[in-house]
Design a protein around this nucleic acid. Structure first.
Lengths: 141, 141
DNA sequence: GAAGTTTTTAGACTATATCTAATCTGAGAT
DNA sequence: ATCTCAGATTAGATATAGTCTAAAAACTTC
């Protein structure tokens, strides 16, 4: 996603393309990691050193509401965010806590009537275990 | 799980069965909800009004390490915990934030070599959408 | 019942997130 | 161009979540 696309996305959602908001979105699309609010704030701060924490949180809330960003569900302190791009699943390392993306594939929904009257919007698959690095380290250590 | 079983579980994991630790475990097994640390602390506090927040956190950490309790991955402030019992998946309501259990069924692992050298310990499936209550309310409202 | 270990406690401290009121910005109207 | 005003941003106070410390208490073992 390049700068012009980000601008279009924001304005298409009724959000002004402010420098701070743009910086949040740009950071999230560039680094497809699962950034904490602190990391995102730091990135916005590189663009404008006078920017406020509140703005980063406000913008993250707006972007999540607009459907451009997703809050990732992981245990541990501090929310994590990612730009909504190619769908994928997640792998969380027990040891180092890193979150990695796994290729998307369809997951079967619960069978029969067990969903009851619930309405499913999306589904996320989280694997847990040891990432490549930690697995090798624990094998050789 | 009754009182004697909880005691056995704790001692089998090398943990003393203290009143506070017992209270944490008992609350989590009774209420198979996905309790926040604050709710658990409140429950422990009903048993012993002088108990400390730190103790609840210590005990939750110990119980997670011992494999009797799991920290549930959900977005939002405040970690949530559940006793490890029958395996199940989760449904998170977009609207009210409640976490509900869904019947367990096997989920296919990523195909081929896409896991690389990762070692998978467990897998969790999270559905998101509207719970029965919120779905009905939004349909009729 | 003494000695040593584990656990708990109170409260300070750190980290994370939100709120408030004042100020600033920019896109459309003129 | 510049006025206007809703939407955005700011600093800093406040709220919420979690951790740490040192001392006291509660068990275990002898």
């Amino acid at each position: 996603m390049d700068a012009a696309e980000i601008r279009q996305f924001l304005e298409g959602s009724g959000l002004r393309c402010t420098p701070q908001r743009f910086a949040v979105m740009a950071f999230l699309t560039e680094h497809n990691r699962h950034a904490t609010a602190a990391e995102i704030f730091e990135a916005v701060n590189r663009v404008d050193p006078r920017s406020s924490r509140a703005t980063t949180y406000n913008n993250l809330r707006d972007l999540v509401q607009a459907g451009l960003v997703r809050e990732v569900a992981v245990e541990g302190r501090g929310a994590r965010f990612e730009a909504i791009g190619v769908p994928h699943h997640h792998f969380v390392c027990d040891h180092c806590g890193n979150v990695e993306d796994l290729e998307w594939y369809d997951v079967p929904k619960p069978a029969g009537g067990s969903l009851g009257k619930r309405v499913v919007r999306e589904c996320e698959l989280i694997f847990r275990g040891l990432c490549s690095n930690c697995a090798q380290r624990s094998a050789s250590g």
